[in-house]
């Protein structure tokens, strides 16, 4: 579904990604692991068009998307939940979800159907629908950020560190929901610093270190390679 070939990205002069190759097959959860500063977020930003690739190709459903604007990429069915959630703090939960469907131009009925789906996935959001997003807890904001992305009915959902800064119980809920979203047919590309979490729910995994893919394979196999994981992800794993 998503195919990244020889992607190189440079901020000012220094390259951040060196010919990264990565593939996300339809219907799967793919984890992209790596320590802080390995280039994980940069990869996602290049895919969703927030930053320009220096060279390389990015294809989505057989279509070349590198060089397209973010709005064009969203329309094709690719949603990106950014690091730090970035919900709109001064908009209500309802407005945040509504704006998630910006490119879809739903009729009022369709809007309600999609919003109900999100509320079913995250009942907490339904309880808070009139609350300003900025006043919610980190876990609720993460649910909102994912719900907002789901409003555009994406074929591929890309999540950047959804577990960051959340309590363990909340992390478990979020991971369960990601699995549930995937079971309903949405392909997932998941970025995580916490390798254990990501390997537990993903089918395939890539490990990124200093801008290069150093390890990839089925998640189970990658998880067994404890020494390599430790070397690239740090001792805490």
């Amino acid at each position: 579904m998503l195919k990244i070939c020889d992607l190189t990205v440079a901020y000012s002069v220094a390259p951040v990604l060196h010919s990264v190759n990565l593939e996300v097959p339809e219907g799967k959860i793919v984890a992209l692991l790596g320590a802080n500063g390995a280039g994980k977020s940069t990869t996602l930003k290049a895919v969703s068009g927030l930053i320009r690739a220096h060279s390389g190709r990015i294809e989505f459903c057989g279509q070349l998307i590198s060089g397209k604007r973010p709005d064009e990429i969203v329309k094709l069915g690719l949603a990106h939940v950014p690091e730090g959630r970035l919900v709109f703090p001064g908009l209500s939960v309802f407005e945040n979800l509504k704006i998630g469907s910006y490119t879809r131009r739903y009729s009022p009925n369709q809007l309600k159907v999609h919003m109900d789906k999100v509320y079913e996935l995250f009942p907490r959001l339904a309880e808070r629908c009139t609350q300003l997003a900025g006043t919610m807890s980190g876990g609720e904001q993460q649910m909102l950020a994912i719900g907002r992305a789901m409003m555009s009915e994406p074929k591929l959902l890309m999540l950047d560190e959804p577990s960051l800064g959340l309590a363990p119980v909340v992390i478990d809920t979020i991971m369960d929901k990601i699995t549930e979203i995937n079971k309903h047919g949405t392909t997932v590309l998941l970025i995580e610093q916490n390798a254990e979490l990501a390997l537990a729910i993903s089918h395939y995994a890539y490990v990124l270190s200093v801008g290069e893919v150093v390890l990839s394979g089925e998640s189970e196999a990658v998880a067994e390679d404890k020494s390599i994981l430790e070397a690239y992800l740090g001792g805490e794993q």
Partner: peptide, 8 residues
């Protein structure tokens, strides 16, 4: 950044 990601 987030508004770009909404397709705005």
């Amino acid at each position: 950044t987030a508004s770009w990601l909404m397709g705005i």
